[in-house]
Simulated scan of single mutants.
Amino acid sequence: MYVQISTVILFDIYHLPQWNFLKNTINATPENERIVCCVDRSRLRSIIDAELEGGSVNCFGSYKYNFNFLSMIMLIIVPRIVWLMWMIRKHKVKFVVSANYQSNLAAKFFSTRNIVFNDDPRKGVIQLAKFAADRVYVTKGFSIEGTSTLNCLKEWAYLNPKYFTPDLKALQHYGVEPFSYIMGREVSTNTTNYYDQETDQLIHCECPSNERILISLEDKSKRDLLKDNWTLLQEPIKDIHSLMFFSKGFLSTGDSMAREAAELGVPAYYAGARNMIANQILIDMGLMKHASAQSALSEIASLEIDDVEKEIARREEVRNRIANEWDDVNKIIEKEIEYNR
């Protein structure tokens, strides 16, 4: 049951990186002026529930029906667009902010003003976004007719030093010290983004038994494959970016978290199959490497960090350098909201 409130802004979240991208803006928006919507997808709802400051999230559509492309369209996307139309009408929404396109199509039906952010503008998706939205923002590295280009990558919305300060307390739960452990992320290949890449790359890596490895698994059924010196991170992971910042190095078979580590100044390695412009920007900046899981893990294990304070200062210098060069996207979203209230 949904309660009628005097909100004017609807935020739609379809994937965890989209929540991370928008959460500072969402939490800065008064509770009685916002509606937050999401899809039931892996750990997304539980993380939003844990991090949303006040109120609750409205969830519709489930990825348990994502058997193939057709089922995703007919059983998830189309019903969600209809539901979002109902939400916009029911709550008299005046402005929609998203990082996909579904709520934008719903808003278009009612001529409700809306904007969309996109960091992976595939041809079909970007055309839908351009059709539906009043303004389409794409991230650094793209120049597409009819869109506005941000001078930043999406992860910077929440990793900018203005909004995130690493906290050593995050390490206490796992009993680790700064730079004494390797951190990794293994994504599931049963999704459209990763279906064509090798499965379980990180899990099957060999690593010295004296190396402590903290790993996030998208497919929790693989937990029994972990070796004795590997620790499964429990979702939702509290202050995951502090854990990431103080890790010796970070390895991921998914692209988003590899970029997060790179933008935190952490030695970052991407072992997935996707060749993305956002990844290449960080590679060209010398902040990330694209390598096989085994070679990346071996390289991280060989790193020697003797001076903790010096390494912290090096990573903070990377963050400050990026902050001086890139946009603060939260300010851009804030201006859009104020203009469209």
Rank of each mutant, 00 (worst) to 15 (best):
S6V: 04
A129F: 00
E325T: 15
F110Q: 06
I76F: 08
R135A: 01
N210K: 11
I283F: 06
N24F: 12
D328P: 08
I281V: 14
S148T: 15
G54R: 04
L153S: 09
A129D: 00
H15S: 08
N32P: 05
V116K: 00
R259G: 04
N114C: 14
V308I: 15
V78N: 00
C59N: 01
N151I: 10
S148G: 02
Y194N: 15
M87S: 00
K222R: 14
K92I: 00
L128F: 04
A28V: 03
E325A: 14
V136P: 03
D119E: 12
K310T: 15
G249N: 09
Y174P: 12
S295N: 14
I76E: 10
P161K: 07
K162V: 02
L303Q: 15
R41A: 03
P208D: 13
L287T: 08
Y269C: 03
N229K: 13
R223G: 06
F95A: 07
M276S: 09
F67T: 11
L225M: 13
M244I: 03
W83M: 01
S62N: 11
D255Y: 06
F246T: 13
E334T: 15
P30Y: 11
W156L: 10
R45D: 05
E218D: 13
S292M: 04
N193T: 13
E304F: 02
S298A: 15
D49F: 00
S252I: 05
T191N: 13
A262F: 02
Q294H: 06
V96F: 02
C207L: 14
G184Y: 03
C205P: 04
V308R: 15
E309S: 15
N190L: 09
F142H: 15
A268H: 06
I337R: 09
L202E: 01
E206T: 13
L52A: 06
R314N: 13
E186P: 05
T231H: 12
N66C: 12
C59P: 02
P236D: 07
M276W: 05
A296K: 13
S188F: 09
E263D: 00
I322F: 07
G54I: 02
E334D: 15
R113T: 12
N104F: 00
E317P: 05
W19N: 05
V125I: 13
C207G: 02
S292H: 07
D306F: 04
L75Q: 12
W19T: 02
Q280T: 11
S256Y: 06
R135Q: 14
I277C: 08
T192D: 04
N210G: 04
L159T: 07
R321T: 15
A50H: 08
K108G: 00
C207N: 13
F246K: 11
K331C: 12
D120R: 09
I5S: 11
R45C: 01
K92Y: 01
D327P: 12
L70M: 11
K140R: 15
N24I: 13
N210L: 09
K64Y: 02
N66A: 14
K335C: 12
A170C: 06
Q4H: 10
T192Q: 11
D306T: 08
F95M: 10
R185M: 08
T253N: 09
I73T: 05
L128H: 00
N193Y: 09
H91L: 02
K23I: 01
I182A: 13
P178I: 14
I126H: 01
E260Q: 09
L233N: 07
A268Q: 07
